[in-house]
Amino acid sequence: MRALSQIPGANPYLVPSSSDPAALKDADGAVIPGGFSYGDYIRAGAVAGVGEILEGVRELVDSDRPVLGVCNGFQILAESGILPGALLPNVSAHFVCKWVHVKVAETHTPFTEGIERAVLALPIAHTEGNYYCSELDLERMRKNRLMAFRYSDANGRIAEDTNPNGSVDNIAGIVNERGNVLGMMPHPERASRPSLGSVDGLMILRNFVRRTQ
């Protein structure tokens, strides 16, 4: 909320996950944040992924409004089927909390406008961030360049040793074909003020806000 509030033109308001789907009717877009505020039973995001409020999110997606899922929000988007694939336990079996670098795709997506091919410093904090999907989905995402962010080093080199959780193809974030849904494990909102150590995430949030207008 605080990260979004500082962006001119944004007028964010909180819609609790227990709300009626109608609460999202007039929203210009939605951010599903991380933090497991909806409980984390069965699998990360599974219970929230079948929650009633998801009907409202689906409507936003279908009416071409932007939806950004961060961390647990990404897990929820994957569990609900809005984005392909699943987020499995990290290969290390540990909770991972650290700053990482991600390389932004060269493709033009509304969320990555102005930061194409950049290397961003963003924090991750998750136990289930190991992105996995079928060969078929992977092929499709490669072809349509839907892998918005991939874990890399500071120079943008993408390799096994820059992969913090075992994600297939070092995937850190993906967009849907239509380009209005982004799911990502790193936290852009935790890199949105100099005092937090990085402002690299701000561009993503700004792009989200612009897409709502």
Binding site: R43, V47, V50, A86, L88
Partner: peptide
């Protein structure tokens, strides 16, 4: 298929 298991993985 909808909730208890995730057929993808």
């Amino acid at each position: 298929a909808k909730l208890l298991s995730n057929p993808i993985a």
